[in-house]
């Protein structure tokens, strides 16, 4: 219902303005929004939206539109506190956020090579990822983020192939509370139960999973 309403509102705005200009998601991605502070995504996230692993800038291409939109809204509100993204998100209009999310979601992205549930973990990081640590109420990462960290629906983002630096930074942000934009506080307690070493190791595990381009 809600996405449909949003689509309808988006379409209505599109026709009202009579020009694709302000709502051209790919233009916002490559050149930025109408306000100067809404800088181009391409600068940090790469021309293909693949991110820059060395710098810890995440892949955006192919992430669900609902997830992208929520993150931009949360950067704006501060429930995902990031000094770079916050002013940028504030400078984007709602219509721009809408268009941008759709465009990025449609960008081609690689999917992880399947890792089946039946595979037994070979080390501590894999154990955490595939089975969890239930003595600390930590479910397996893949139980929400999907097999091989593929991502599930519009709420649980992909982990596979994201830069290790990015994933570890997010776990640390959950731990210290600078990121608290999870639905029903599902992620916060899990991240807080991880040791610093575990956060690094499990981030490394998902970053290392091989990807294959979707047919």
């Amino acid at each position: 219902m809600r996405p449909l309403q949003r689509t309808l509102v988006g379409s209505a705005l599109f026709f009202l303005l009579g020009s694709a200009h302000a709502l051209d998601g790919s233009k916002i991605f490559t050149a930025g929004g109408a306000q100067p502070a809404a800088m181009a995504c391409v600068a940090c996230h790469g021309a293909d939206g693949g991110g820059v692993a060395a710098a810890g800038f995440p892949r955006l291409a192919g992430l669900p539109a609902a997830y992208l939109r929520k993150q931009l809204e949360d950067f704006k509100r501060g429930s995902r506190d990031n000094p770079v993204m916050r002013p940028l998100a504030i400078a984007l209009t709602d219509a721009e956020v809408q268009a941008l999310s759709q465009t990025i979601a449609a960008m081609p992205a690689a999917a992880p090579v399947p890792v089946y549930r039946s595979e037994m973990p070979a080390n501590a990081a894999q154990k955490l990822a595939l089975q969890g640590a239930w003595e600390r109420q930590i479910p397996a990462c893949v139980s929400c983020h999907g097999p091989a960290g593929s991502g599930v629906g519009g709420t649980f983002p992909p982990l596979a192939g994201q830069p290790a630096g990015y994933l570890a930074a997010q776990l640390i942000a959950w731990q210290n509370g600078t990121r608290h934009n999870d639905v029903n506080d599902l992620m916060g307690p899990i991240a807080k139960s991880l040791t610093a070493q575990e956060a690094q190791d499990v981030a490394q595990y998902f970053a290392s999973l091989s990807l294959e381009v979707k047919p």
Partner: peptide, 23 residues
Amino acid sequence: GDQCAVCHGAQGQGQKVGDHYAM
């Protein structure tokens, strides 16, 4: 609606990745 639908879906239908249910 508040606690379960985020994973199990608004219609209790679960969520799939590829051919198999992830939830």
